[in-house]
C-alpha cells in the first residue's frame, strides 16, 4: 500500500507551508496532493506557488496531484479550475488533477485528460457512477470518508476492471462546506472582510458541546470533526480494500504520523502498538466509526 498526503486544509503562513513541504520531500510518502481546496480568499500561496512546490516534490520522487476546489462559486473560481486543468493537459508542468466537483470532471473531459483522480466530494456511492467516472478518464478513486470499508468493497467488486482506491486514513474529517465562513462568524466578521483570521490557526478552532465535549472544528467555510479519524489500528482490515492511504496534514507531527503508517505497512510495528504511539501526536481523541459503517464520531473496536 502507498501513502498519500492530502491537500492542506488549513491556512498556514507562507513560510510554514514551504517548510512543511520541504520536510515532506524526504519523508516516506508516495503521493502529495497540493492546492487550496477550502477557500478561494486564501492567498499565502497562489496557484503558481503551489505548482513550484509541486516541482520540488516531483524532483524528490513524489507523485504530485493538484486538487481542485470543493465548492466552486464564482467565475474566478472557474478560472483557477481551468488553469489547474490546463497545467495538466499542456504538460506544463503536467501534474495529475484531483477533480472535486462535476465542473472539474467536465473540464478535464473537454481538455482530453484521461488520467485523473476522482476526489472525495464527487459523491460516488455506487458502481454505476464510479464506472461512469472511469469511462470519463478517472484512474484513481479517492473515497468519501463517510463510505464504510464494506460498502467500498462492494463497489469495487462490481466493477468491470479495478481502479486504484484511496481511503481517508488520518486526520480531522472534512464533513461539510458552506458559503458562510464560520471562523469569520466566530470573530463577528463577515466573509468579505474576514481579515483572514483563520491564518495560523494550525488545526482549526474546536467547537464543543455545552458539556465541554469536543464535537466539531471550524476551518473557515469548512466544518470538520473535532476527533481525528485514524485507521492505524484498522490497517489489517484495509488491506485488499484500498491501495492508498490518505493522511491529512496536521499542524504538527505530520511526518511522525506518516512514519508510523509506514512502519505498520512494513511490518515493523503492529497496528495496535502504532495507534498507541500515535495518541500523543493527535490533536484530539481518535475515531473510526465511518470505516465500520457506524456514526463517524465513534471509536469502534471489534469484539
Amino acid at each position: 500500500m502507498k501513502l498519500a498526503l492530502g491537500p492542506l486544509l488549513y491556512y498556514w503562513p507562507r513560510q510554514s507551508v514551504l517548510d512543511f513541504y520541504a520536510d515532506i520531500a524526504d519523508s516516506p510518502i508516495d503521493s502529495v496532493y497540493l492546492g487550496e481546496t477550502v477557500c478561494s480568499r486564501r492567498h499565502e500561496l497562489r496557484l503558481e506557488d503551489w505548482l513550484e512546490v509541486g516541482k520540488v516534490l516531483a524532483a524528490a520522487g513524489k507523485e504530485v496531484v493538484m486538487s481542485s476546489q470543493g465548492l466552486v462559486e464564482s467565475e474566478s473560481d472557474l478560472k483557477t479550475l481551468r488553469r489547474i486543468v490546463r497545467q495538466c493537459a499542456d504538460g506544463e508542468p503536467g501534474f495529475r488533477v484531483e477533480a472535486n466537483d462535476m465542473g472539474a470532471v467536465r473540464l478535464l473531459g473537454e481538455a482530453g485528460v484521461r488520467d485523473w483522480v476522482a476526489g472525495p466530494t464527487l459523491n460516488i456511492f455506487n458502481p454505476t457512477t464510479l464506472q461512469m467516472m472511469i469511462d470519463a478518464g478517472a484512474t484513481r478513486w479517492a473515497v468519501a470518508p463517510e463510505i464504510s470499508g464494506a460498502a467500498l468493497a462492494e463497489v469495487r467488486a462490481a466493477l468491470a476492471a479495478p481502479i486504484e482506491t484511496e481511503v481517508f486514513a488520518y486526520g480531522r474529517l472534512p464533513l461539510a462546506h458552506s458559503a458562510r465562513c464560520f471562523t469569520a462568524r466566530h470573530f463577528n466578521l463577515q466573509k468579505d472582510t474576514c481579515e483572514f483570521r483563520c491564518l495560523a490557526i494550525n488545526d482549526g478552532i474546536t467547537l464543543r458541546t455545552r458539556e465541554g465535549e469536543p464535537f466539531l472544528t471550524l476551518n473557515g467555510v469548512q466544518t470538520q470533526s473535532a476527533r481525528v479519524h485514524n485507521l492505524l489500528g484498522d490497517l489489517a482490515g484495509v488491506q485488499g480494500k484500498a491501495e492508498l492511504l490518505r493522511i491529512s496534514p496536521q499542524g504538527s507531527h505530520t511526518r511522525a504520523i506518516v512514519e508510523l503508517f509506514r512502519a505498520v505497512l512494513a511490518g515493523a510495528r503492529t497496528p495496535t502498538a502504532a495507534l498507541d504511539d500515535c495518541r500523543p501526536l493527535m490533536v484530539e481523541a481518535p475515531c473510526n466509526g465511518f470505516w465500520h459503517g457506524r456514526a463517524g464520531v465513534e471509536q469502534y473496536v471489534a469484539a
Binding site: 470543493g70 465548492l71 466530494t121 459523491n123 468519501a144 470518508p145 463517510e146 474529517l173 464533513l175 461539510a176 462546506h177 458552506s178 458559503a179 466539531l216 466544518t223 470533526s225 466509526g289 465511518f290 459503517g293 457506524r294 456514526a295 463517524g296 464520531v297
Partner: peptide
C-alpha cells in the same frame, strides 16, 4: 451547508 456535501449527520448518528 452545501446540500449533498454534508456529512455532519452521518458523523453524529451514522
Amino acid at each position: 451547508m452545501v446540500e449533498g456535501r454534508c456529512a455532519l449527520s452521518a458523523y453524529a448518528t451514522g
